[in-house]
């Protein structure tokens, strides 16, 4: 089934939505999307399979199955979220389930850059603030309004200062977060680099 939810386009300065809390450290990309779902040549159908094995194990009690989290778009996680495999299928599956932004204690490197590349801003908050949100979110719907310009988030009665890598923040605000066109603007510089790298000269048999 093709999901309606695809990557956003252009400037991202504000994200409003309901939060969904997922508790646990070191949640790896194999858990976000088990390897058997990587047998595909498009990302379109991944949304339904997000956290498939964890959800089956919890038999309907996983946050991604809970009725109250329906329509949530801001994922709240703990530390080292997205560690392990470089599979972009992981953020693609989250996005196709409906996630538009992630707030966590910390993120794994490749997962972070994959999220940025497809338009999912990842913000960090101290452990205690994450706990506060997760506690709150346990009992009821928790809505957040994220302001990327001022790097903050507010709910009905809580305010947070979010952190995000400055390069990512600028890209989202300028709307130039689709890297390919930005990179290709420097075509002459790329060709100069190709011509000056020492090893491409002595590997000329491969060119």
């Amino acid at each position: 089934m093709k999901s309606e939810l695809t990557a956003p386009i252009g400037e991202i300065s504000q994200i409003k939505g309901k939060c969904i809390s997922l508790i646990g450290d070191d949640i790896d990309t194999d858990r976000i999307i088990p390897a058997r779902f990587l047998k595909c040549v498009t990302f379109d159908a991944l949304g339904n399979s997000v956290f498939e094995d964890d959800r089956k194990t919890l038999n309907g009690k996983h946050p991604f199955d809970s009725e109250v989290n329906k329509g949530a778009s801001i994922l709240i996680v703990n530390s080292n979220f997205g560690c392990g495999s470089s599979r972009e299928h992981a953020p693609q599956a989250l996005m196709r389930w409906g996630i538009k932004a992630i707030i966590g204690e910390s993120f794994a490197e490749i997962f972070y850059s994959n999220c940025i590349a497809i338009g999912i801003p990842c913000f960090t908050l101290p452990k205690e603030s994450i706990k506060d949100i997760q506690k709150y979110n346990d009992n009821e719907n928790f809505f957040l309004e994220i302001d990327l310009k001022n790097c903050c988030a507010k709910s009905k009665d809580l305010n947070f200062n979010l952190e995000i890598r400055e390069s990512s923040r600028k890209m989202f605000l300028s709307g130039e977060w689709d890297a390919t066109s930005t990179l290709l603007k420097n075509e002459t510089l790329i060709e100069n680099k190709f011509n000056e790298l020492p090893y491409l000269k002595f590997n000329s048999h491969l060119l």
């Binding site: 470089s86 972009e88 953020p91 490749i110 850059s113 994959n114 590349a117 497809i118 890297a179």
Partner: peptide, 9 residues
């Protein structure tokens, strides 16, 4: 390692 969007790049 890189993700698929970076493979594209």
């Amino acid at each position: 390692g890189i993700g698929t969007s970076q493979v594209r790049d």
